[in-house]
Design a binder for these strands. Structure first.
Lengths: 232, 232
DNA sequence: ATCATGTGTTAAGAAGTGTTAATCGATTGG
DNA sequence: CCAATCGATTAACACTTCTTAACACATGAT
């Protein structure tokens, strides 16, 4: 089982890229190096990889775009961004694309190895130790978080990603107050005024869906947050 | 029965730390404050705690290191980080250490309290005061604390969170005097003049609702507090 | 009785929330 | 390439919640 892990490394700084490649090889990885996004995508299409390491700043095709392209072809492959310092904005954007981790230059090989291990481990056990439930029952509803579908009786309501994330958080806090800022941080990644308003809009949508069972209610708790309650 | 929860607070900014300690105390926690990581670890070793609140940025021993040390001795104790704004990097690192939640300064006491509650509950110690009744009968009324509704005959009165909290406290002290300061501490978290006046306004509102049953009365006890009585 | 202080009540104000609709941006399908 | 569509954000407006202010009145000490 212990075949060499195949890593796709996309990094436009050749010097740095080669050094990194060498280090990773020494640690038992099979590393293919590409120096721009297009080459990276081509390589990705040609071979099977276990993990992608993608520099964010690149000519021709930047890291985020590449990540998007890769995700379209394989939505599960582990993906780690290499970012320059102080790119908070980019980081957030990157996370939305769906990378599994990122690491800020300069970094130590040790640190990178740790993250690679962590990410591979996570990917290796897709569901087994996912400690977050994938299915909730809310009164008469069944909510499948992976399919993002809310079912009651025989009618299905497809949820958008944000609707689904928010409902999931509410479910995980059932009967407790889900603080506004907790939800904002976990789903929107910031606590700005507009994100807050956006969240209110989503709450409003969820309430509309949940009206199908009058026992289920999302209560607003002034100045605190929201609470999902099921009245028996 | 209901012993006070013991919180270890490690925060190097003494001013902030003391204020936080005071607030948490007013909300019914027993809080020990340490101003650096080493002291924090010593305190942790000496006493039994139910939860740790750890500032990330500290001299001598930073929050992550402390968290690691604590985890080595008790891998289950709930742990919440206090972080400065824009520390995305730190946050991720922190999660790996295994904290249960983090909160970004500046934060409101309300929010911190909600998270403490959530984390304590998750930690499987629902005995804090989980056996609080959720339903009271007051004369002809039925008061549902979770739905925050006061029902008489077939007319429902929705209560705001503060109205509900206050009425609940009164119910739990039925026929006894609920001291002003007790109520202020538990609901407002301070004993200031304005909070007091605010409370009086809420009492006034509750009296209005309770007029629907002439047997029910909130009596004011000058200089002491309030007493909820039901005349049969 | 007189005075400082505490309480009851109502109303004004500031901030937070619920909801609908307009807008933006990305993706899709012709 | 454009139109159509979808998800998400922003704008707008009404409404709720809580605090603060204001004023009347009650209480207890002196």
């Amino acid at each position: 089982m212990s075949e060499l892990k195949h890593i796709l490394l996309v990094e436009d700084d050749t010097n740095f890229g080669v050094i990194l490649q060498e280090h990773l090889r020494l640690h038992g990885f099979n590393v293919e190096l590409c120096t721009d996004g297009e080459a990276g995508l081509n390589a990705f299409i040609k071979s099977e990889f276990d993990l992608c390491l993608v520099d964010v700043m690149m000519p021709k095709k930047d890291g985020f775009t590449l990540a998007n392209d890769i995700r379209q072809r394989d939505e599960d492959i582990p993906l780690i961004f290499l970012t320059a310092r102080s790119m908070t904005e980019d980081k957030i954007k990157g996370f939305k694309v769906g990378c599994d981790d990122y690491i800020t230059k300069p970094f130590s090989i040790e640190e990178l190895l740790l993250r690679i291990q962590a990410v591979l481990k996570r990917a290796g056990k897709p569901e087994s130790e996912a400690d977050e439930p994938t299915r909730f029952t809310i009164g008469g509803f069944i909510f499948d978080t992976t399919r993002q579908v809310l079912t009651i009786k025989d009618s299905e309501q497809k949820l958008t990603p944000k609707e689904s994330d928010l409902l999931k958080l509410l479910c995980m806090h059932e009967n407790q107050i889900l603080p506004r800022n907790t939800a904002l941080r976990k789903i929107w990644g910031d606590e700005s005024y507009f994100s807050g308003r956006s969240m209110d809009v989503f709450i409003s949508k969820l309430r509309k869906y949940l009206k199908a069972d009058p026992h289920v209610e999302i209560m607003g708790v002034h100045g605190k947050g929201f609470r999902l309650v099921v009245n028996k």
